[in-house]
Design a protein around this nucleic acid. Structure first.
Lengths: 340, 340
DNA sequence: CTTGGCACTCGTACTGCAGGAGTGCCAGCC
DNA sequence: GGCTGGCACTCCTGCAGTACGAGTGCCAAG
């Protein structure tokens, strides 16, 4: 009983503090929530909660605010996430289905996520490493330059311009295209790269140099994990919600948003697309962002092609709402990628 | 003489204020610059400058700060831009030449510009409208789906997946590819779109439906000016330099940075690649950004394929330095695009 | 036209004080 | 044993008053 009420008090404190952004005292607490007990009782519970390190008071004569540990308790005790309303669901799927492009899907996802949560949204591009080669196209730009286009199953396109050592003819290009595609199409990029690397030797008699440079650029494009590391950010204007502590919260956040590598670290290695991970304050990998929480999850066409997306906000944020939004967007994006 | 000294005073005020970010008084002014006159004389000049609306004082007993009009005078009177040092030039070209991709060029440009100026950099993607069609590629994904790839002279690649009404064969695709390329390759996209739209009728006898949907998607991709409107932003962390007026300066800026359309408006229609345009405070198109200046210029492979790039910062910014950096980056990017 | 002097303004920083929110603790009650 | 009302205590916030100093404008003299 007592433990139950203490948890109710913690929960009430979190909710009030998130809503008002001000330390909450015992009196206002009993007024706003139907706890059925007097302020004095709540005070006792508060003292106990403070003892356990779940809440703290900024100064002696102020109300309490949750600590990181308090938020953690709160989040862990969440059983049911706020469900999205039917209208919200329709809006989400409608908005995402309008996309006709991988870039577009990603762009719309960030925007959507930022709008739903009123926070900064981060979406990692679908990972490349597990995807397969759909087609390789070669186009002559001039007599000695060729455009190499690599089309992947995820819809991603990589392109390179290469300088070739011999004159390009249509036959030569056609032959190369055929050989390369029969070796690479349908393979995972890692295997495709290996298969291609083996090719030049087989065809050592004719335009070795040409083969060589084209294959080299393809292999390079395939192993180039820049695309894995691409991350899109949206809703930075919502940083305004961080409050007025510019130097301690907003500035480090802006710096982090500049560095894609840092963002990827923030999102963390997505473990599964069914689980929404929450990192509160110091739990995160970046010390400067000690007053920042991350709500993230994996997404992807199939379970083994995982990327991550999520939102970043002040520790004082609406966890249930954010978690629900992140989960919903992830599942819709996954299904859309599945279709494509 | 007197006019000359007044201008020297204005200039000194601008430079000091930009450097210190504090209203500058007559005494400190004569100390820091060799004006050869007494503070009292400077005060007289200041009174005159204030009369002309070039400087103002925040409160009665404070020093002076330049007004927008004052900055305008200062900028207009700049004859020689701060030249880039040899080392800087090498760094710029070295950094940009490492790029192997249109995306990469743009990315690197923003980063570079942000770093050079310590401000927020904005780069518009090379415009599509003036570019020509280099090649159109068709790839069968399944028996009834095709990938349409449009490759433009700027190196930009647009792709669409289309559902076709008949079974795709290699011959059919080959035929279509040939026809489409002979009609479109080398043309400007506007003309290519027109030429393609005329095609289906000529070939009314065979797979009309297929022709139709493919051409439709191409025309759509060509007229889709999203790519024109793509803008990349970098150096948002430098917003910290805006000072502490979060609500009045940083928040509206963050909001503007979210909206690409707004950013394009900010950059303005680039008129020429040789001229660096400066918009100071209220001169800009967005009222909320009244304390923000824009330094922008056009760039592009040839003079008729202009895009824009620039930096955005507080009105109190280092105009000579920013202008020099913007000009330098624009010229290097132009030359790199020319090569490609 | 320049300069030194002087009175004046006004923002900033500091101090002291009243008010109030919130707490902790204790004694009594169910 | 747990809940409640009461009460003393802490300490933050806001406000008024004051001293200080930077900077100005103006004037009279060089």
């Amino acid at each position: 009983m007592v433990e139950d009420r203490k948890m109710a008090v913690l929960r009430a404190i979190v909710e009030d503090y998130v809503a008002t952004q001000e330390p909450v005292g015992s009196k206002t607490l009993v007024e706003r929530h139907q706890l059925g007990v007097s302020p004095a009782t709540v005070r006792n519970d508060m003292a106990a909660l403070e003892e356990e390190g779940l809440i703290a008071q900024p100064h002696t004569s102020a109300g309490r605010i949750p600590t990181d540990k308090g938020y953690r308790f709160f989040v862990d005790r969440l059983t049911t996430l706020k469900a999205m309303s039917a209208a919200e669901r329709r809006a989400i799927s409608g908005f995402l289905e309008g996309a006709h492009d991988l870039d577009d899907v990603v762009q719309r996802s960030v925007r959507l996520l930022a709008q739903l949560t009123q926070q900064v949204a981060i979406v990692q591009y679908p990972t490349l490493s597990r995807s397969t080669v759909r087609h390789v196209e070669l186009v002559a730009l001039s007599t000695t330059r060729a455009l190499v286009v690599l089309i992947l199953s995820t819809g991603r396109v990589e392109q390179r311009v290469v300088e070739v050592p011999v004159e390009l003819t249509d036959e030569l290009l056609g032959e190369l295209r055929l050989k390369i595609n029969s070796a690479a199409a349908g393979e995972r990029i890692s295997e495709a790269a290996a298969a291609l690397a083996a090719l030049p030797e087989q065809a050592a008699h004719d335009a070795v140099g040409t083969y060589g440079v084209i294959v080299a650029s393809l292999v390079e494009a395939m192993s180039d994990h820049r695309s894995d590391e691409r991350v899109v950010v949206g809703g930075t204007a919502n940083l305004a919600r961080f409050g007025d502590n510019f130097d301690s919260a907003i500035k480090p956040m802006l710096e982090a948003l500049e560095e894609h590598v840092v963002l990827l670290k923030l999102l963390g290695h997505a473990t599964s697309s069914s689980h929404v991970a929450v990192r509160i304050g110091h739990e995160g990998p970046i010390d400067e962002l000690f007053s920042t929480s991350v709500v993230a999850t994996g997404y992807g066409a199939s379970d083994d092609s995982l990327s991550a997306l999520g939102v970043v906000g002040p520790t004082r944020m609406d966890y249930p709402g954010s978690m629900a939004a992140v989960r919903a967007v992830a599942s819709y994006v996954s299904s859309i990628l599945d279709e494509a």
